[in-house]
Every structure is written in structure tokens, then in C-alpha cells.
């Protein structure tokens, strides 16, 4: 708990307020978005495994029309069930994470009230298109997850997710030789689109990159609690 002298007396937070009603600093919220099948849920699971012994964390999923992602995380037992909440999005995850964030805000606040205190909440979007980004009213930072099998021209195409996400994860690098994706070209295109913003090449199968993503999250958390 990071008690703060600047107490807020409102009944409940409105959106991205950094403090909870009792004046304590709320958990850092990191969004994970990206196309269908790029490995967002698997990345969330890997992050939970990497960080759960050192941090108090929880996950919100935004599925398109099922609770598959929440159920995958439950099945994998990466976190206890009371730390995983599924938000229903009416078939539009990008609406729930960007245009109308009210259900997601309720989910993150309820997790902090009921499973807290928490250091970190991961908000996962259902698979969507290259323009889907998280509202700043919902998350403090966002990770965009693409994969090499989705086409090595995705970094070149750009779009708000690839261009502006705080971290770009290029997943499934182990598949590159089989699908004819050129990792060097993807890295060069990502650099051209993102300038100094970081990119991690990840393979959950071989474990490559997971530690880099976890380290990036730790840096964000250190900045948030500083």
C-alpha cells in the first residue's frame, strides 16, 4: 500500500485516477491488444508465471463472444480464479477497451476491492484489428502482440497498434522459417514505424523474449510506484 497524503474524497474513481477512494495508489494497468491468434492470452499466461511470485496481480479478459480466454487462464492455473475477470464486449472488443471503457473500469476496480491490494492488472483485449488501441482512461501502458505467421508485412503496414503501443511483441518467432517470414525485415520495419519505442521478439515455445517482456513490465511498475 502506498499511502498518500493527498486524499481523494470522491465515492469511487471515474477513470484513470491514480488513487483509490481511500487515498492509496491504485494498481498499474497494462493493456495487451493485437490480432486474433497472435498469442495475447499465452503472453498474459507467461507474464503471470514470470511475475506472480514477486507481484500481486490480476487479469481482465475481453472476449469477442465467449469466455475462452478467461477459461484458458483458469485451466492453466496461472492465477487463482478470484484474480481473473471476463468482460463481455457485445462482439466489439475495441469498443470495450477504447470507446466505452465503463465495463472494464468496473472490472479493474472490483478486482482491486475484492482481490487486492494489487500491484498490476493486465487487461487483455479480444483479438481485433490493427487499429484497436486501449483508451488512456483505462490503461497506463499498452503492449501490442503480433506474430510472424500473420504476415511479415504487418510492421510495415503500421496502424495505431503497431506504431504507438508502448511495447511491440512479435510472437512465434520459432515459426518464421516455416512460414517464410523475414525477422530482420520485420525488425527494420518496426524500427521505421516506431523510432525509439521498444520491440521484443518472442517465442513462448522456446522461452525466448519472455524475460524481456517481464523486465519491461517491471520497469513500468517501478516508474508507476516511484
Amino acid at each position: 500500500m502506498h499511502l498518500d497524503h493527498d486524499h481523494h474524497h470522491g465515492p469511487v474513481a471515474l477513470s484513470a485516477d491514480a488513487h483509490r477512494p481511500d487515498g492509496s495508489r491504485r494498481a498499474l494497468r497494462i493493456g495487451l491488444g493485437g490480432p486474433v491468434g497472435s498469442g495475447k492470452t499465452a503472453t498474459v499466461a507467461a507474464l503471470c508465471r514470470a511475475l506472480r511470485t514477486e507481484l500481486s496481480l490480476a487479469v481482465v479478459t475481453n472476449d469477442i463472444y465467449t469466455r475462452e480466454d478467461a477459461e484458458f487462464l483458469l485451466r492453466e492455473a496461472v492465477l487463482p480464479p478470484e484474480r481473473i475477470t471476463a468482460v463481455e464486449t457485445g462482439a466489439c472488443p475495441h469498443t470495450a477497451i477504447r470507446d466505452d471503457i465503463s465495463a472494464n473500469l468496473e472490472a479493474v476496480e472490483d478486482l482491486e476491492d475484492e482481490a487486492g491490494p494489487l500491484d498490476l492488472i493486465l487487461v487483455e483485449s479480444g483479438g481485433d484489428n490493427l487499429t484497436a488501441t486501449f483508451s488512456k482512461g483505462l490503461v497506463d501502458a499498452q503492449i501490442f502482440v503480433i506474430d510472424v505467421a500473420g504476415g511479415d508485412d504487418i510492421p510495415r503496414k503500421g496502424g495505431p497498434g503497431v506504431t504507438t503501443a508502448d511495447l511491440l511483441v512479435v510472437n512465434k518467432t520459432d515459426l518464421a522459417p516455416y512460414v517464410g517470414s523475414d525477422l530482420a525485415r520485420m525488425a527494420a520495419d518496426a524500427k521505421a514505424q516506431r523510432a525509439e519505442l521498444p520491440v521484443v521478439f518472442q517465442s513462448l515455445r522456446s522461452g525466448t523474449g519472455v524475460a524481456d517482456v517481464a523486465a519491461w513490465v517491471r520497469e513500468r511498475l517501478a516508474a508507476w510506484t516511484a
Binding site: E88, C92, D99, D100, S102, A103
Partner: peptide, 10 residues
């Protein structure tokens, strides 16, 4: 488009 959650209900 008033952001009050209605989009997820039928």
C-alpha cells in the same frame, strides 16, 4: 455512443 455500457447488451 454515450459511454455507459449499452453496446454490450441486446
Amino acid at each position: 455512443r454515450f459511454p455507459a455500457g449499452g453496446h454490450a447488451h441486446s
